[in-house]
C-alpha cells in the first residue's frame, strides 16, 4: 500500500524548495520596498500619516498570516481578479513583510540620536537629505541583524502559501505524503530542507548582532 520514497520524490521536494526560495526573495524585495515606505510614514511630520501607518501595522501584526492569505485569496476571487498563485502568495507575503520590516527599520532609525538630525538641519540639509546622508547609513548597520533575523521568519512563513494552493516546499511535502503516507519521513525531509535555508541565516544574524555589539563597546 505504501510506495517507496524515491529520487523522484526528492526532486519534487527540491523543486518545492526552489519555489520557497523564490517566493521568499520576492516577498523580501516587494515587502522591503513597501516596508521602507511604511517606515517613512511612521516617522513622517504629519500626524495623520503616522496614525495610518500605525493602524496598518497593528492590523497586520494583530492577525494571523493565514487569515491574511485567505482574505487576499478570496478577496481577489470575489472581485473577479484572477492572478497566478505566485502573485497571490507574493502579495500576501509582501503585506506581512512590509509591516514587520517597516517596524524594525523605524526602530533602527529611531535609535539614531535626534541630535544627528538637528546637526544636519542646522547645516541646511532638507529632511530627506538628512535622512539619506546622515540617518539611513547609520541606521543600516543597526537594522541589518534584525532584518536578517526576520528573513528566517519570512522563509518559514512562506509555508503558509501552501494553504492557498501555491506549490512550494510544504505543499509538495503534503502532495507526496498523500500518496506515500510516510509523514515522519516526508515532513522530516521537508523540515530538513527548511533548516538548511534558515539555520545559516539565523547564525549569520547572530554573528552580525555580536559584531555590532562589539563595535559599540
Amino acid at each position: 500500500m505504501f510506495g517507496a520514497f524515491s529520487t523522484n520524490h526528492l526532486i519534487y521536494l527540491l523543486d518545492g524548495l526552489l519555489w520557497t526560495v523564490i517566493l521568499s526573495a520576492l516577498a523580501f524585495l516587494l515587502g522591503g520596498i513597501a516596508g521602507f515606505f511604511v517606515m517613512l510614514a511612521r516617522i513622517s511630520r504629519f500626524r495623520w500619516l503616522r496614525r495610518v501607518a500605525l493602524v496598518y501595522i497593528q492590523i497586520v501584526q494583530g492577525t494571523p498570516l493565514l487569515i491574511q492569505m485567505f482574505i487576499l485569496y478570496f478577496g481577489l476571487g470575489v472581485f473577479g481578479i484572477s492572478v497566478p498563485p505566485l502573485a497571490a502568495a507574493g502579495l500576501g507575503m509582501m503585506v506581512y513583510t512590509s509591516s514587520y520590516l517597516g517596524e524594525i527599520w523605524r526602530g533602527a532609525v529611531g535609535s539614531i540620536a535626534k541630535t544627528q538630525f538637528e546637526a544636519a538641519e542646522c547645516l541646511g540639509l532638507t529632511r530627506w537629505q538628512a535622512l539619506q546622508d546622515v540617518i539611513l547609513p547609520q541606521a543600516l548597520k543597526i537594522a541589518t541583524p534584525p532584518t536578517v533575523g526576520f528573513l528566517v521568519q519570512l522563509v518559514k512563513n512562506t509555508s503558509l502559501a501552501s494553504v492557498v494552493g501555491f506549490l512550494e516546499l510544504t505543499r509538495a511535502a503534503q502532495v507526496i505524503n498523500n500518496s506515500l503516507f510516510q509523514p515522519f519521513l516526508v515532513f522530516g525531509v521537508a523540515a530538513f530542507f527548511y533548516f538548511c535555508v534558515c539555520y545559516p541565516l539565523s547564525a549569520w544574524s547572530r554573528s552580525l548582532e555580536r559584531k555590532l555589539n562589539v563595535g559599540r563597546r
Binding site: K156, N157, S159, A173, Q174, G188, A191, Y194, Y199
Partner: peptide, 22 residues
Amino acid sequence: EAVRNTPFIVQIFFIFFGLSSV
C-alpha cells in the same frame, strides 16, 4: 535550533500525521 528554523505547519504535520501513522 531545530524548532526555530523550521515552519510550525511542517512541525504540526510531522507530529500529528506522524504519530497517527504509527
